[in-house]
Design a protein around this nucleic acid. Sequence first.
DNA 1: ATCGGTACCTGCACGC
DNA 2: TGCGTGCAGGTACCGA
Length: 290
Amino acid sequence: MPELPEVETIVRSLRPMVAGRRIIEAEFCGCGSREALHRRLQRILATPPVEFQRRIQGARIEAVERYGKHVVFNLRTNGSQDERLYLLVHLGMTGRLTCENTPEFRSKHTHLVLSLDDSGRSIHYSDIRRFGRIRLAERLGEEFSKLGPDPLQISREELFRLLRTRRAMLKSLLLDQRFLRGIGNIYADESLFRAGIHPAAIASRLGRVRAQRLYEGIRETLSLAIAEGGSSISDYVDASGQPGFFQLQHQVYQRTGEPCLRCGQEFGSKIRKMIIASRSTHYCPRCQRK
DNA sequence: ATCGGTACCTGCACGC
DNA sequence: TGCGTGCAGGTACCGA
């Protein structure tokens, strides 16, 4: 599900509900045998479950932030000396982070519940496909050192410089979190359409003008998507359970065979789909020439 | 350096 | 109704 705009929306909705609260208890859940639960947790958590519970219990949530597609909980543990601890959540394809008011509620795919010192309120982590990951870290640097710049913070010049050094196809590059952090399949396609650039174009061959169009295309797409609360295709909701609405403004993503919204009326062009980096890639053959 | 393939999961739509 | 197939927002790892 979640790319930069969805994660940003989750963080913004979660923050006012949990910032300043203390985590009373971490509870792991899920149906199936004890061994099945253990295997599942081993994949989802990098830390052994018991150690995870021990370290997080009693910690205060000082801040909730986004780093690329990660949700970062800034924690202060209540050990003898106040220590910083980071809870890092990556939502994979179908992960959800929601705030619940009913203490006993569990959805079918809830894996972790963090109960808060706030009249039965809790943070729920659920994930149907279990591609998401949860980690504890003392430092952010080790976890995030491989990630590229944030596409909303990078400057036009910096993007141009980075593009010049790479010979990959743009679609592959935009999906690469070491190049830019936060863009996924939806927003790669939507950004390239807004920029009017073919997804298979080679990065290093972009001139200054087209690089600038890409820069604007990415910024426009991401900020509009954030303003609409993200794209809800099937699973995504924010921390209050509200869907996003940017899917109603998708120009190319999952519109294969439908008329291009920019030139379809006039020229009858239809959105096409091709595979790049083994991912579906949607584009208008007329608006995005090679 | 970059690419394709595979693996990890469940659910859903589709054709038969 | 059920079964098989393919596809889905992500990433890591492999060998070429």
